[in-house]
Design a protein around this nucleic acid. Structure first.
Lengths: 121, 121
DNA sequence: TTTCGTTATATATTTAAAGATATAACGATA
DNA sequence: TATCGTTATATCTTTAAATATATAACGAAA
């Protein structure tokens, strides 16, 4: 007699989980990390502050920003050096639109995973 | 006037990609790597040979096997030390069933990603 | 022209993961 | 009992990624 998946797995809290991202020419560049960073830049007005909130080194954060901007036709993060507060950064209208699109995608993906988690029983 | 996602992304081969796995109590243990390893164990009858085919160190392969077996009620990989050919390993009926389930899941996921890749335009 | 906090960039250090190496244990078979 | 190739396990080395540190450039405003 064949077993159900649940019988194979046994007791415990089992679930399907996963990650989604956007690739350009096979290289991933737009996923949960960059999205969180961009939203923190939007909120704080600074790569520096955003990095700190994410507990990321500034260098790493800057690399993500650089990568994002080099991959798209429209710049996603707009940076300014010098000036009133030493400079700062913001995200473009296009970035906001991409982020919204990503959140929608995430929602669908979440539903997908929840459904498949039920399928484990 | 607001831009389309494609206008933001610009020229290039953009696609949605991702990963899926099974977690137990928040810890991932069953994903593409372990599945490939198990199928190679099924094919070769040995962790050692499977590891070599995957270009994985034996240690790493053994850790994956150990992890898999410690997470489920039914052992997925059956190992034997000593004996005719020095021992060997095989996968259980339950492992095969889990792998089939995972492949089905992967197929659905692939369709999901393909659909969402179309949504990028 | 000095100050400010930021971006931009290079280099050194630390850390964690993977890989390499070595060896004991194992048990059927000759 | 000696042999075999495997599993099982520990330890050392290598590698890659992230972090830490340092510094120049920047430009508005006082």
């Amino acid at each position: 007699m064949s077993k159900t998946i649940r019988q194979i797995l046994g007791k415990g809290n089992f679930s399907i989980n996963g990650k989604l991202w956007v690739e350009k020419n096979g290289e991933r560049f737009f996923g949960p990390g960059p999205v969180e960073l961009m939203e923190l830049i939007e909120e704080t007005g600074s790569i520096n502050k955003a990095a700190k909130k994410m507990k990321l080194s500034y260098k790493k954060a800057w690399e993500i920003v650089h990568n994002l901007n080099s991959m798209t036709a429209q710049p996603l993060v707009i940076t300014a050096t010098g000036g009133e507060n030493g400079g700062g950064s913001s995200i473009s209208k296009e970035a906001r639109q991409m982020i919204n699109h990503y959140h929608e995608l995430r929602k669908k993906f979440k539903r997908f995973m929840e459904e498949e988690t039920l399928g484990l029983r």
